[in-house]
Nucleic acid binder design. Structure first.
Lengths: 185, 185
DNA sequence: CTAAACATGTAAGAAGTTACATGATTAT
DNA sequence: ATAATCATGTAACTTCTTACATGTTTAG
């Protein structure tokens, strides 16, 4: 039972990189974390407020003529400690995927073979698109390696996970579509 | 933009099987759908109420001496139609997994090699346990095949997906742990 | 000239979890 | 005795998404 939720810890973690404002955090998540963690502005800004109130980060306001003030949050030592002790705690909750495609396939006896194949084809295409996104992220991490040398390795590892499981999903699609071919009548 | 949410459609789908009460639905989900869909009582009972109000199912109350009345919900023709047209609609939203292990690994540069290995080992064990659960579900579907002959095939297909992606995850763990061996100092 | 990017934030609502409330029966 | 299973439901809470509000600069 930790004090903050995982979304807050995710933000704390991102603040260790060169991303320090709400806007930068959102961009970072959309570019690099999107395959296993998503956060909206509706969570980011309130979380940053909480983080500041709890003394985990300090706000530095930079005035930019004509633009709204840029809020940079700098992790305090307390913030770094909180992050580290969260990282060290074992993960007890198994990640869980809610899969609408599988849900529909589960009730596939109410569909025709053609409709089932369509469902699977559609899913396969989405998985393939996702795989391509992973390759793109991979390349962008590798090309900007110099910036966050130590981090890059771990970022690539999480991508490898995404690639492997997505590949397994694509293969399942192929095999399952095969099964239904010849059943269209 | 469909009228109901996926959880409601999931319940509608389960009502096509021999599970017709809130309690039976919950049991069914925990036994057979748990790898890609979870629903709590706090959702089931309000959803059944809505389903009845919308004329998608009809309530049959069975009195059981000493026990609370058993509420059986029977799908109406309208209910079957609503389910079918949902099944036929293409899935647009890609399923998305929020993965706490990957989130921690992403910030792995703040951990020691030993701690990282521990994290991965722990995850691998959880994945292996999940794989075993899949095998158990598989066996129970196969042994009760006679009950829902037409459905069993589809249920096994969703399990195959789970097994394949879990296996890919386990292999990733093994490979990644390997990478960190020899770095403990 | 117009759209996208930069930049921060709030409010309402949807969705989901957890704990609570109740009470009989059955297995250990 | 006591825990688990059967059985239905609600209330409070947490979490997250979406839409709104505001306004500048930059690129096409």
């Amino acid at each position: 039972m930790s004090k903050y939720n995982d979304t807050t810890y995710a933000i704390l973690g991102i603040l260790t990189t060169s991303c320090r404002s709400g806007y930068a955090i959102k961009q970072f998540i959309d570019q690099s974390l999107t395959h296993f963690w998503k956060i909206s502005y509706g969570q980011i800004y309130p979380a940053l407020k909480l983080i500041t109130e709890e003394g985990l980060a300090e706000l530095q306001t930079h005035q930019q003529p004509g633009k709204p003030d840029r809020h940079d949050y700098i992790l305090t030592d307390k913030g770094k400690d909180v992050l580290k002790s969260w990282l060290e705690q074992p993960v007890v909750q198994m990640p869980f995927e809610r899969n609408e495609v599988l849900l529909k396939l589960f009730f596939g006896s109410h569909l025709s073979a053609i409709q089932t194949i369509k469902l699977l084809h559609n899913y396969k295409e989405m998985l393939e698109a996702r795989y391509e996104v992973y390759l793109t992220i991979e390349q962008s991490i590798e090309s900007e390696k110099s910036e966050d040398e130590a981090d890059a390795r771990y970022w690539l590892l999480t991508l490898d996970y995404g690639k492997r499981t997505t590949q397994a999903g694509i293969e399942w699609c192929t095999a399952t579509i095969q099964q239904f071919h010849g059943e269209e009548h």
